[in-house]
């Protein structure tokens, strides 16, 4: 099966000598919801910039649905929609005009562009704002406007560079639902985000990039299986004076109603609750201390740093 996106040995060195990509390779399969994660300055935006032609690669190959961008970039672009990290529309244009105009840039007849504009502005809750200048929109609305604009030509591959940055929780959840819906309808989605909960909830596969190298490229499920331990916060109904005996589990008292417990791979939560039950401690709620993917992400980056140090 032809990959939706295939990247081979992609390298980028900027004019000032900064090497942003050291020769990364990865594939994204059609229909996938793929997370491209990495700390600031890791090379995510450079990669996206190269895919959508805003950055020129130094070496390597990029294909979108089998079309090499060096051979037929216009055809490749026709299948690609991009939602950049920063707002990049004219602040003085009206919402409706911005989206219809983008359709025109993709060669869409005006009538079709207008129909699609109505469809996506309605789906993204912006139809009432169609006559408003873009600068008058809230941050969340501006992000949704960029999504509508990127979808106007109904691309097979949609790349979103931190689409929910600065967006409130309610709106973020509604954007997730929308993205999951268009993914179910067949659009391949690549997402970069700093909210690892977002990547864990939405994405099936993942690549982690750090200092211009891919340090992990696997499915989210496989990655989470490698987690050796998880740290939970348990809230007790009764007041606790000291950390109870947890029978082999490492734990500490956070405050008089909360315990932090580390559960190693192979240990069972049933044993933990049994130990607590024996001492008459009733747990009313429980949560991960940090997002599981976040813990892995941090440890992978730490390993990468350590490897670099050893070299």
């Amino acid at each position: 099966m032809t990959a939706a996106l295939s990247i081979r040995n992609l390298q980028k060195t900027y004019d000032n000598g900064f090497r942003a990509l050291n020769g990364i390779s990865f594939d994204v399969q059609p229909g996938d919801f793929f997370a491209l994660l990495g700390p600031n300055g890791a090379g995510k935006s450079t990669t996206i910039g190269i895919i959508c032609s805003l950055v020129r690669k130094t070496a390597g190959q990029v294909s979108i649905f089998g079309i090499d961008i060096d051979e037929n970039f216009p055809a490749a672009k026709q299948m690609l929609g991009v939602v950049p990290q920063e707002f990049n529309f004219s602040q003085f244009e009206k919402v409706y005009d911005i989206v219809v105009t983008q359709g025109g840039f993709y060669g869409m007849p005006r009538k079709l562009a207008e129909e699609r504009t109505e469809k996506y502005l309605k789906q993204l809750g912006l139809w009432d704002k169609r006559g408003t200048q873009a600068r008058m929109l809230s941050g969340g609305m501006k992000r949704r406007l960029m999504i509508a604009r990127a979808l106007i030509h109904e691309p097979k591959l949609l790349i979103l560079d931190e689409p929910t940055a600065g967006v409130d929780i309610e709106l973020r959840r509604s954007m997730w639902t929308f993205l999951q819906e268009i993914n179910r309808e067949g659009t391949t989605i690549i997402l970069t985000t700093h909210y690892l909960e977002e990547a864990e909830s939405l994405c099936r596969n993942i690549a982690i990039i750090d200092k211009g190298d891919i340090v992990e490229n696997t499915s989210i499920k496989s990655l989470l299986k490698t987690l050796n331990k998880e740290v939970f916060i348990l809230d007790s109904r009764d007041t606790l004076d000291e950390c109870p005996d947890l029978k082999g589990f490492e734990g500490r008292l956070l405050d008089d109603h909360s315990l932090e417990v580390t559960v190693e791979k192979g240990q069972s939560l049933t044993e933990l609750f049994a130990a607590l039950g024996e001492q008459g401690i009733s747990i009313v709620s429980m949560r991960n201390r940090a997002n599981r993917l976040e813990e892995l992400f941090v440890s992978l980056l730490a390993e990468n740093k350590q490897l670099e140090g050893e070299e």
Partner: peptide, 8 residues
Amino acid sequence: EELLVSPT
């Protein structure tokens, strides 16, 4: 960038 990313 709206134009640069398009096939125009």
